[in-house]
Write a protein that binds this DNA or RNA. Sequence first.
DNA 1: TGAACGTATGAGCATTCGTTCAGATGAAAC
DNA 2: GTTTCATCTGAACGAATGCTCATACGTTCA
Lengths: 113, 113
Amino acid sequence: MTIVHPGEVSRALSHLPGDTDIANIAAVFDALGDVTRVHIALALLHVELCVCDLAAVVGISQSGVSHQLRILRDLRIVSYRRDGKRAVYRLIDDHVREVLMLGLAHTLESQEN
Amino acid sequence: MTIVHPGEVSRALSHLPGDTDIANIAAVFDALGDVTRVHIALALLHVELCVCDLAAVVGISQSGVSHQLRILRDLRIVSYRRDGKRAVYRLIDDHVREVLMLGLAHTLESQEN
DNA sequence: TGAACGTATGAGCATTCGTTCAGATGAAAC
DNA sequence: GTTTCATCTGAACGAATGCTCATACGTTCA
């Protein structure tokens, strides 16, 4: 396998993040790349919700939601506060909100053809 | 499993896209949620590249790149033009570029703590 | 303290995914 | 036509994923 356009290749390489950064970016998108997890994230776009309410919204077990929330927490997509026995989750910042809305916009656009 | 905050739940539900839309949004993020595919997409941020040059950049076989490009094509993340025997790929629009850069920004921010 | 409730975690299983290998398709040059 | 080269596709296999079940943790209230 040979390089056909060395100039373009080195231009591409020069703007490319390091392997660790690429892996982290992939991890963030992967976290949102699952129906259950985007469902959770979209549900949190405008309100905070506790785990059992999230389970009701997305329609899987409380345990399943908790497992997915761990992934979203680890990737700094959601955060939570304790309210007595409850854990109330929210999106971590407007940055995440923006990504979600771009994703939504992208799929709505794609439907037009 | 019971609903604890009916008001918040219905607020969440009222802003939620339909199941099909949610699945499509998840599919788009999932497409970018793989190291190889996001590597490809990031390589295309500023240049067009043919398949074999992409293989050189991301470091897997040309066949593997082609398989992943199919997924990115199907989800309207990349498009391509033919140049003789070659297929030259590019990001489909600035929308996608914006999503990628938000993802990059998010991971760079997360590193600060 | 002990019971009750919401949440988190670990194991196990079915399913999905990404890769390579081998071969097919299609375009250009002879 | 045939050869060559770049790309695409299908099969197959190991690795990773998401769910449920059962159980543990931690907080509240009696």
